[in-house]
């Protein structure tokens, strides 16, 4: 297991005792060594995410969004700075931070059920077999796959595979869910459906979610706050937009809301300058 550091203690030394953040990123820097010298992707990036908050991150291609997300996931080493998740400095990957990638990255030789079960077994190894079976089936039916549970992942459509990806991530009961353009490869109809699935499950589970997207409408519909990253190199958080729609949100209400175009304008303005 990773070594844990109690951030409460560290913070109280600074006189800043607080525990209201699920995720606290301070002075995060990422440097990729390249043949032409070091490439500084992120430079002193700060970001705080509250419990049960849904954050979306937008920014130009190549600015370092995936880099940031994989560092939070623990899959990408940190060059400088710290990431504290749930009061523990992260040192590596773990099931407390679920990840949904752009490609569903299911194991194609396994069934949808087995793909979810693989993780559930890891996390709920102490429970009974029946419990685990219930969990897997519950989440698969949540994402609308009760009829396709025992199909091989390779035989599922892209959209269905990503549904399994969502079920797999939620079934592990992570504290934080990290999503890297999860619907980027889907057609717009399927994308809308999956946004609904995602937001519905998220509403019930009330976990913290951080989602990268290129889609301005998607970010407004899903997020409590939209983080806009500046273009790289040396990217930082450029601007933050609070989305004040109450939840649960219905797509229609959001689109009809008078503030919707104001938000949209704000984001597009940022991206175009």
């Amino acid at each position: 297991m990773e070594t844990l550091e109690n951030s409460k203690v560290r913070r109280s030394e600074n006189g800043l005792f607080e525990d209201k953040y699920m995720l606290d990123i301070t002075q995060l820097t990422k440097i990729y060594p390249t043949p032409k010298g070091d490439y500084v992707v992120l430079d002193d990036l700060d970001l705080k995410v509250k419990h049960e908050e849904f954050i979306s991150i937008i920014g130009h291609s190549g600015c370092g969004k995936s880099t940031l997300l994989t560092m939070i996931a623990g899959l990408n080493p940190i060059s400088r700075g710290t990431i504290v998740a749930n009061n523990q400095t992260i040192k590596g990957p773990g099931p407390d931070r679920g990840v949904i990638f752009q490609s569903p990255s299911l194991l194609p030789w396994m069934t949808a059920y087995d793909n979810v079960m693989l993780g559930v077994k890891q996390v709920f190894g102490h429970g009974t077999k029946k419990d685990r079976d219930d969990i897997v089936k519950y989440y698969l039916s949540k994402v609308g796959l009760e009829d396709a549970m025992y199909k091989k992942a390779k035989d599922l459509s892209q959209g269905m595979q990503q549904r399994v990806g969502i079920a797999r991530a939620f079934a592990l009961k992570p504290k934080v869910l990290l999503l890297d353009e999860p619907f980027g490869m889907l057609d717009s109809l399927t994308r809308g459906e999956l946004q609904d699935v995602l937001i519905e499950v998220w509403n019930q589970e009330k976990i913290t979610a951080i989602m990268i997207t290129h889609d301005v409408d998607e970010s407004i519909f899903l997020a409590d706050r939209v983080i806009m990253m500046t273009s790289g190199p040396r990217a930082k958080v450029g601007d933050i937009l609070e989305i004040d729609f109450e939840r649960p949100r219905l797509r229609k209400d959001v689109l009809d809301h008078p503030d919707y175009y104001k938000y949209r304008e704000h984001l597009i303005n940022f991206l175009e300058h």
Partner: peptide, 27 residues
């Protein structure tokens, strides 16, 4: 082996035996 699959193994913290038999060998 596809990096995505390895990432799955990492996130789930599979042990080496599970990693070999569930992910690496089949793929």
């Amino acid at each position: 082996v596809d990096k995505d699959y390895i990432n799955v193994a990492k996130v789930l913290q599979l042990n080496i035996g599970q990693k070999v038999f569930k992910i690496i060998l089949p793929s």
